[in-house]
């Protein structure tokens, strides 16, 4: 009886996975694991702090009025993670890759009681508490399902709140923090 159930287990799992259209959209070679934040690379801070003449992708005004600018290469040199989550702007669960918000906050010297303004290319901005980024794995996604985000499709950076893994974040209030076309972070 129990052996039969054990044999049936993977079959049932397969059925339940394949019957979930959101999960089914994750490609077979996805770097994400459902329910986990996967670390893709430990990062290289030497590259982050080294001078780079490339096009600035993200400008950050940090503590003591310090300005940190990151080119695409420097942004990619931050520790990279992959988080699978869903939102109302894309179909199903997708795999978002990029540095975590808490690492970005470390770079600009933000503390948990601080807030930051997240500003998009079109000057739209929203104020976000740093504590939220320290508590949850908020990701500054540079790519979705392995494809880099362009300006025409929410790029270069899309702030993603992990709503799938945290039921308490599944509210339109937290959706307002998911700024796309991000190009500036200002510590208040």
């Amino acid at each position: 009886m129990f052996n039969s159930l054990k044999l049936l287990g993977p079959v049932c799992l397969a059925i339940s996975v394949s019957s979930n259209p959101a999960f089914a959209e994750l490609s077979a070679d996805t770097k994400c694991v459902l329910g986990e934040t996967v670390m893709l690379s430990a990062g290289d801070y030497q590259v982050v702090i080294a001078p780079d003449d490339g096009e600035v992708m993200l400008t950050m005004n940090g503590i003591d009025s310090t300005v940190v600018t990151l080119t695409e290469a420097q942004f990619a040199a931050l520790p990279q993670y992959a988080v699978a989550t869903e939102n109302e702007h894309l179909d199903g669960i997708n795999c978002y890759e990029g540095p975590l918000g808490r690492d970005i906050m470390t770079v600009i010297g933000a503390k948990s009681e601080d807030t930051v303004n997240l500003t998009a290319i079109n000057d739209y901005w929203v104020e976000m508490p740093v504590a939220l980024m320290l508590e949850y794995d908020v990701i500054f996604a540079r790519s979705v399902n392995g494809e880099a985000l362009s300006v025409r499709d929410k790029g270069p950076i899309w702030v993603m709140v992990p709503q799938t893994d945290n039921a308490e974040l599944r509210d339109p209030f937290y959706s307002t923090y998911m700024v796309w076309q991000l190009n500036r972070v200002d510590l208040n």
Partner: peptide
């Protein structure tokens, strides 16, 4: 490009 991205919003999710 920005306008393009706003149109894309209408196509997914």
């Amino acid at each position: 490009d920005i306008m393009w991205s706003r149109v894309i919003v209408f196509q997914r999710g």
